[in-house]
Every structure is written in structure tokens, then in C-alpha cells.
């Protein structure tokens, strides 16, 4: 299924790959790129990316490790690619204007970005609904259980979620709402959560 993705037509439009001088056109151009990135990430269920547009984590196992994905910023058919400078301009637009992405670590942007084709509030709601529906509110769940375990009845939409993102969802939404509490594992990392 990874090869079935087709970029929107505009991805084959050569001027899209050069930063446009006119401010209005540039803004439209950046919007187009943002849309392309969001579609791309949603299709391949990519939750985070490096700053040069390669996959950092995806819910699909074979997306993460293979090079089978069509490249995002390169279009060989028309012999065009986006320069590194322009790439960071696009990401910055996606983060600050469209607000559908965030630096994984704002102090160290090099680490990449989260792409929010599904907002963290929506992620939190999905997670909460799952825990609620399976009668597990108030019990302790390990992060392993919430991401990798095959027999925990996780819905497809949540399976194999990047742990880093999961922790962010827990911290930024559920804990702030007073609906979750984290448990540390022996090494001092976050190992589990209790959702009420």
C-alpha cells in the first residue's frame, strides 16, 4: 500500500520547488507545501519527521525502516527538489502559521518535528476512549501495552504510536486535565500511566 500514494497535482508543478519572491504567492506556496506534508504524513501515518523531510517515526512498521516512500521534497519526474533553506522555511510555516506541527524539542530543533495531521487533543481523546471502552480507567497501563502489545486490544488508529508522542499527549493533555498520572520505571524513564 505504500506505493499507492499519489501526490496532489501541484507536486509536479516546477515553480513549487523554488521559493517565490512575491509575498502573496509565497504564502500560497507555503500553504500548498503544508497541505502536501499533512496529506503525506497522514497517509503513511508519520507522526514525526526530521528537518530534511525523512520519516522519524510512523505507526506503519515498514514505513519507518524502508526507503520505499516517494521522497517528499524531491520530484524526479520533473527533475526538481526543494533546497534545504526552503525546506526549513516550509517547516517553520507549518509550525507557526498552520500550527499543525511542533518541534520535538524547541531547544534543539535539529531533533525534528511532530506532524499533527491529528492534533494531540484528538490523540488524547482516542486514547481516553480506548481506555474507557475497555474498562481500564483507574488501572495502571504500561506504555508498552499502549503502543506495542498485540493482545491489548488496541485499535488500529493507536497501534504502534511513537512513545515520545504518546508521552507528550499524556503530559500536555490528559495530565493537564487531571485525568492521568505517570509512573516511572526503574531507570527513571516514563514507563506507565494511570488514566482515570
Amino acid at each position: 500500500m505504500t506505493s499507492e500514494f499519489t501526490f496532489p497535482k501541484i507536486h509536479s508543478f516546477p515553480p513549487l520547488y523554488t521559493k517565490q519572491p512575491n509575498a502573496t504567492i509565497l504564502s500560497t506556496q507555503l500553504d500548498s507545501w503544508s497541505q502536501i506534508i499533512l496529506q503525506y504524513c497522514e497517509y503513511f501515518r508519520i507522526t514525526s519527521m526530521t528537518l530534511n523531510g525523512t520519516v522519524k517515526s510512523s505507526q506503519l512498521v515498514d514505513v519507518g525502516k524502508s526507503d520505499s516512500l516517494p521522497p517528499l521534497f524531491v520530484n524526479n519526474a520533473i527533475n526538481r527538489s526543494v533546497s534545504a533553506d526552503f525546506q526549513s522555511a516550509i517547516f517553520s510555516h507549518l509550525i507557526h502559521k498552520v500550527k499543525k506541527a511542533e518541534y520535538i524539542n524547541p531547544k534543539n530543533p535539529e531533533l525534528g518535528i511532530y506532524v499533527y495531521w491529528r492534533s494531540i487533543t484528538e490523540w488524547a481523546q482516542l486514547l481516553y476512549d480506548f481506555v474507557d471502552k475497555t474498562g481500564q480507567l483507574g488501572t495502571v497501563l504500561t506504555l508498552y501495552e499502549l503502543t506495542k502489545a498485540e493482545d491489548s486490544g488496541l485499535p488500529e488508529s493507536l497501534r504502534n504510536l511513537d512513545e515520545e508522542l504518546l508521552v507528550k499527549v499524556l503530559k500536555d493533555v490528559l495530565i493537564k486535565q487531571g485525568r492521568a498520572q505517570l509512573l516511572m520505571d526503574d531507570e527513571g524513564g516514563i514507563g506507565g500511566v494511570k488514566i482515570v
Binding site: 495502571v140 508498552y144 501495552e145 502489545a149 487531571g178 492521568a180 498520572q181 514507563g191
Partner: peptide
């Protein structure tokens, strides 16, 4: 002004540790 977080009891901790062992075994 932050809502009070759910309390983690000793039992929670015990279950958590068991579950972690279980996860390790699965891995």
C-alpha cells in the same frame, strides 16, 4: 490551580511492576 492528579497507590505500583516484567517477557 492545576487539577489534582490521580493518586498512585502502592498496589498500582505493584501491578505496574508486574506489568513491566510481563512486557519485558513479551519483548
Amino acid at each position: 490551580n492545576t487539577p489534582s492528579a490521580p493518586k498512585i497507590t502502592a498496589q498500582d505500583r505493584a501491578i505496574f511492576q508486574l506489568k513491566q516484567q510481563r512486557d519485558k517477557l513479551k519483548d
